[in-house]
Simulated scan of single mutants.
Amino acid sequence: MIPIKDIIPRRETPFVNYILILINTLVFLYEVSLPPDFLNRFFYIFGLVPARYTHPEWAYFAGLHMDNYWPFFTNMFLHGSWFHLISNMWTLFIFGDNVEDRLGHFKYLIFYILSGLAASFTHFIFNADSVVPAVGASGAIAGVMGAYFIMFPHSRIVTLIPIFFFPFFFEIPAVVFLGFWFFSQIISGTFTVIVNQNASGIAWWAHIGGFVFGMLFHKLFKKNNDYYRDYFPDELLYRYFR
């Protein structure tokens, strides 16, 4: 399922969301400018490698400092491929603007960062022995999706579903779309724990941790309704989303 757009109109320009997309894009453009060997080292230094903190001997051999905790933050601005970047930024573009509307610009930035940190720590807990760098904004974006899941239960997501190579478009309730996505992360994450490996290379538990953080803690960042601008006349249809 590929999300195309949601039906919720935003009230303000999502400056922070645009800036986050820009930063992620600029960092990736820097990544692709690096020679392969330098890029691999770049991922090990700024990506989240759990074994860096759980296996001192390996970390020393790999030239990684155990007392550097910045990777829990910096990993959320790195991406491994164009597809990885575009899919993450497209998802952030669809869901982030409405969440920023509800939280306000500064609180949304803090919420996004904390969601990413929650995702990083969750990944670390469930993959403590991994020597593979975890990179990507998807954990932080999962936090945004978790907040959207709770705040916009009546929203609908225009979704592209290819059937026998033919594209079909459906309006799917946001609670169904995001609920199915979250359930699939739990199933996949649980499977990796049972078999004790992650062949797909996807940080399932980072997604789960970010989503749960977004669901549980978004209310701490939500601004009072008095700070919302009024809807424009052509937006009256959407008042019940408030």
Results as ranks from 00 to 15, higher is better:
His207Glu: 11
Pro233Thr: 01
Ser200Ala: 05
Tyr228His: 11
Ile194Gly: 11
Tyr231Lys: 12
Ser200Pro: 00
Asp230His: 11
Trp204Asn: 10
Ala206Arg: 02
Trp205Thr: 06
Phe213Gly: 00
Ile208Glu: 05
Leu216Met: 14
Asp226Gly: 06
Gly210Ala: 12
Tyr231Thr: 11
Asn225Gln: 12
Asp226Ser: 15
Val195Gln: 02
Asp226Lys: 15
Ser200Asn: 00
Thr192Cys: 01
Phe221Gly: 09
Leu216Val: 14
Ile202Met: 05
Tyr228Val: 04
Lys219Ser: 15
Leu216Ser: 12
Met215Phe: 09
Phe221Trp: 10
Ser200Lys: 03
Tyr228Trp: 11
Gly209His: 09
Lys219Gly: 10
Trp205Ala: 03
Gly209Asn: 09
Tyr231Pro: 10
Gln197Val: 00
Leu216Gly: 13
Arg229Lys: 14
Val212Asn: 08
Arg229Cys: 06
Gly210Phe: 13
Ala199Gly: 12
Phe211Ile: 01
Phe221Lys: 05
Phe213Pro: 09
Val212Lys: 00
Ser200Thr: 07
Ala199Cys: 04
Asp226Tyr: 05
Phe217Gly: 02
Ile208Asn: 07
Leu216Ile: 15
Ile194Thr: 03
Asn225Pro: 06
Phe221Thr: 15
Ala203Tyr: 04
Asp226Ala: 15
Asp226Arg: 13
Lys222Pro: 01
Asp230Gly: 12
Tyr227Asn: 11
Tyr228Lys: 10
Asn196Ser: 07
Val195Ser: 01
Gly201Arg: 08
Gly214His: 01
Val193Gln: 15
Asn196Met: 01
Ile202Asn: 02
Asn225Val: 11
Leu220Ala: 10
Met215Leu: 10
Asp234Lys: 12
